[in-house]
Amino acid sequence: MNVSTAGAVQIIIRRELRLSFRRPDQLIQPLMFFLIVTTLFPLALSPQLSVLRDIAPGVLWVGALLSSLLAVEGMFRADADDGTLEQLVLSGHSLTVIVIAKTCAHWLLSGVALVLVAPVMAAALSVPAESFWLIMASLALGTLTLSWLGAIGAALTVGLKRGSVMLSLIVLPLAMPLLIFGASATDRAIHGDSAAGPLYLLGALCLFTSTLAPFAASAALRITME
C-alpha cells in the first residue's frame, strides 16, 4: 500500500519533531543567541527607555533574522551527513513535497519558539504590552518567510564544508525586504499606529515566498545532492 502525499508530510514532520526533542540543544541554541544579541544593544547604546523603544523594532528583527539563519543551517545538512537525506529523496515522493514538509517542521520548531520568546525581549526593550500581539503576528509571518528563504540557502550550501558564512551571504540580501516590512510593522505597533499596511505587505511576501521557494529549494537540493 503506497503512502499518500499528506501521509508522507505527516511522517516527515513527526520525524523532525522527534529528532528535535531528542536533541533540544539545537532548538535552544538559536533562541539563546537571540536573547544575547538583543541584550547587546541596551549595553552598547543606552538603557534609557525612550531610546530602547525607538531601537526595539530593529533589534528584534535583526536578532530574529540572525538567529533564524543559525537555526536553518542544519536543516538539510544533518540528514545529508548521515545519508538519510538520500533515503528521503528516494522515498518515492516528490522532492518539493519533502522540502515543504521539512520547512514546515523547521518553522513549527524554531519559528514558533522565537515568536513565543519575542514578547519577553520586547518587554525588556520597554515595548508597551498592547503591541505584543502585533509583534508576534509580524514575527510569525516573518519567521515563516525566513524559513523558506533559509531552506533555499541551506539547500544550496548543503554540500559545502563551511556553509554557514556562505548561507548568510546568500540569504541576508534576499531577506532585506522582509526586514523593512517587519521592522516597520513592529515600529507602528509600538507607537500605537495602525500596522495594517506593512503587515499586509509582510503577508503578501510570505505567501509569495511560500509559493515559489519550495521549487527553488528542491531544485537546489537536487543539484547539491548529485
Partner: peptide, 8 residues
C-alpha cells in the same frame, strides 16, 4: 520513518 514513507 524510513519505511513508513514508502508503504503502510
Amino acid at each position: 520513518f524510513a519505511v513508513g514513507l514508502r508503504r503502510t
